[in-house]
Design a protein around this nucleic acid. Structure first.
Length: 665
DNA sequence: GCAATGAGCGTC
DNA sequence: ACGCTCATTGCT
């Protein structure tokens, strides 16, 4: 094995060929994000393969690192030290993943080692010593039937079958068995002998998808990678993938970097889910990572969801991806019947019921009809802890800053009715004389907080019907058929056996009132995720959404038109200069450090800095930096350079940089 | 004039 | 956290 080379003087001899090893060292300093050259001794020669883990003396300290390449000579003028040791000859970093990690680091103004920490799980020596199983023979290609309801569905499968690169944005029909569709796509690729990688937001989705794949290709043909496995099981499965033993790889966000051999397809389900964004530096997003990966490796790319994000829309509009969507009439027949009950109407209904807080009668009827069908009813209620923003007091359009179109909010987030000038959360400008551009009203209102209590009342209203809740730390993955009220927060909706008879979406104002550029998109995404669990209209499925029917996401839900919504959303963001129409980054930190860094930024011509504005109560501030979409590379470049200079100069105040941040706030 | 000491810095 | 440079100190 890779023994530690002896330290006695003069005993180590450089390898006769390729004696130089280029190493990515595991130190967290931005200005050291480059390769360092070491010498490989004759003893280390055989083990020191590209992609292996090494330990090197770096500035006197022993640090871990990855050997990225072997070379004949070094450009370094000083003398090279020998690798301290090769940890093992297992090439944990394939050239493909190394290239991907570098691209992701560059895109997000981060360092390679930060990305490699996400891409390569910790080593487990015992597991590494064991051989991985043999790769099973390729499965049969599944039929096209499941994709037959989408005009370009069979074309997509045909491209996967023939090994052509396909790039597709797919909007699943309501009540679609989407795990089965993704399994079919993956199995089609596996049938050609190539590998497939599918990423889902959470463990419940992963379990469903895994079951669907096992049903098609058997247990030995598919593996699920997720962060919550123990270190040994995690490394074992990951190694099996690395060694080419499993063609179909499923996982949550960390698995986007999985070293799948001969990758033929990368796919992501529900790309708008914020679980697809890593909360660790440099905060990469799964869709972006997979777009990069498809680009670099030539693998096909598939992004699917009930709803469509503005980012996915941009992939379509730029011509990079084709869309896979059902025809209107197919959609109409698959969708549940959706009605919207405006907030005013609801208030009236409550008043009319003499303060004994009731749901709108239409919601009652929908629930009763579901129970008559022996089906459960899903009630979507808001999550706690969102930050209310301001809206027009009359038409309820979100109140936006005149200068930069950021969201207006009350300083400190208070909403106690005391008049106080609103200010922009992005650029900090005060808005003393708000006037709604839509209806001309001068009134502002805070958004109303949710309806959990109403859901409980609903449960009480149907005495005899069991009430179950899913959310927070108690999430149900499935509920049986039969009459029941299932109260769930967004993202925690259980799948109902046989489908829900009805869904009541009571979180409209909480979702739409968020101080977030993505509020409308996110509301529609969550509504469609819930409504997508309901039976078709023909089978009696009904959805009641409590939100004003004039709002774009509400209309999109009623008409079940995620494509129209994404188009509208992208057009609006283009108009206002928001991502993904532009590239944006947030930079936060202590005010002086932030100010100095921003002053010295050499932005491309289209560059623009908004703010900084105070961030919370701890004195930190945040600035927004935006450039034209075509200058994204320059933006991440100057931000990375800025971080490198600060790191080199040992600046004590750390700045945090996020590219394409989810919340711009 | 020059060794001895120490602070600062880059890191192969 | 090592080992290099360079400045300062203190002694001949």
């Amino acid at each position: 094995m890779a023994g530690k080379a002896t330290t006695g003087r003069g005993e180590r001899v450089p390898a006769s060929t390729l004696p130089v090893a280029r190493i990515c060292v595991d130190v967290p300093l931005a200005h050291l994000d480059r390769l360092f050259d070491y010498q490989v001794s004759t003893e280390q020669d055989a083990d020191a393969v590209p992609g292996c883990r090494v330990r090197v003396r770096f500035a006197g300290q022993l640090v871990d690192g990855y050997l990225l390449e072997r070379a004949e000579e070094s450009g370094h003028k000083g003398k090279l030290t020998f690798l301290d040791r090769v940890i093992s000859a297992e090439p944990v970093l394939s050239p493909e993943v190394a290239e991907l990690a570098r691209a992701v680091a560059d895109r997000y103004a981060g360092s390679l080692i930060d990305v490699l920490r996400m891409a390569v799980p910790p080593r487990h020596a015992r597991v590494e010593a064991k051989p991985s199983p043999e790769r099973p023979p390729p499965p049969e290609a599944p039929g096209d039937a499941g994709w037959g309801r989408y005009p370009f569905g069979p074309n997509l499968l045909e491209a996967l079958r023939s090994g052509r690169q396909a790039r597709a944005v797919w909007q699943a029909l309501p009540a679609e068995d989407w795990p089965a569709r993704l399994a079919e796509a993956a199995a089609t690729v596996a049938s050609t002998g190539r590998g497939a990688l599918v990423i889902v937001p959470d463990h419940r989705d992963l379990a469903r998808l895994h079951a669907a794949c096992v049903a098609l290709v058997g247990v030995e043909g598919v593996v699920a990678l997720s962060a919550d496995l123990g270190p040994s099981a995690r490394y074992q499965r990951w190694l099996a993938v690395r060694r080419g033993a499993v063609p179909i790889v499923l996982g949550t966000r960390g698995a986007a970097f999985a070293p799948v051999a001969d990758l033929g397809l990368v796919a992501v389900w529900d790309d708008g889910d914020d679980l697809h964004t890593e909360p660790r530096m440099p905060y990469p997003n799964v869709r972006d990572v997979l777009v990069q990966r498809s680009h670099l490796s030539g693998a096909s790319f598939l992004v699917g969801g009930f709803a469509r994000t503005a980012e996915a829309q941009l992939l379509v509009e730029s011509g990079w991806a084709h869309e896979v969507v059902a025809a209107r009439e197919v959609l109409r027949s698959a969708a549940p019947r959706v009605v919207a009950v405006g907030d005013h109407e609801w208030q009236e209904a409550r008043d009319a019921a003499a303060r004994s807080a009731r749901l709108p009668s239409i919601a009652f009827e929908a629930a009763r009809a579901a129970f008559a069908l022996e089906a459960p009813v899903l009630v979507q209620v808001p999550r706690r802890g969102y930050v209310p923003a301001l809206a027009c007091g009359q038409c309820r359009a979100p109140a936006r800053c005149r200068r930069c179109a950021g969201p207006l909010a009350l300083p400190g987030g208070a909403d106690d009715g005391v008049p106080r000038p609103a200010s922009c959360r992005w650029c900090g400008a005060m808005e003393a004389a708000f006037r709604c551009p839509t209806c001309g009203s001068r009134r502002l209102r805070g958004q109303v907080i949710g309806a959990r209590r109403t859901a409980e009342e609903l449960g009480r209203a149907f005495s005899g019907v069991p009430v179950r809740t899913s959310g927070g730390d108690e999430v149900l993955s499935t509920v049986p058929g039969g009459p029941a009220v299932v109260v769930a927060t967004p993202g925690a909706e259980p799948v109902a056996e046989g489908g829900y008879g009805a869904a009541l979406l009571l979180d409209g104002w909480a979702l739409l009132g968020r101080a977030d550029l993505r509020a409308a998109e996110e509301a529609l995404r969550r509504w469609m995720a819930a409504a997508g669990l309901v039976r078709t209209g023909a089978a009696g499925g009904r959805v009641v959404v409590v939100a004003d029917s004039s709002l774009t996401p509400v209309q999109a839900l009623v008409r079940w038109d995620p494509v129209w919504h994404a188009r509208t959303e992208l057009a609006a963001r283009t108009e206002l200069g928001f991502p993904p129409a532009v590239r944006m980054a947030t930079v936060d930190g202590a005010p002086e450090a932030l100010g100095k860094a921003l002053d010295e930024l050499e932005l491309p011509p289209s560059g623009e800095i908004l703010g900084p504005v105070p961030l919370g109560e701890d004195g930190r501030e945040r600035a927004l930096v935006r450039v034209a979409r075509t200058e994204g590379k320059a933006l991440s470049g100057v931000l990375a350079a800025m971080l490198a200079v600060r790191s080199l100069q040992k600046e004590p105040d750390v700045l945090r940089v996020k590219l394409d941040p989810l919340e711009i706030l």
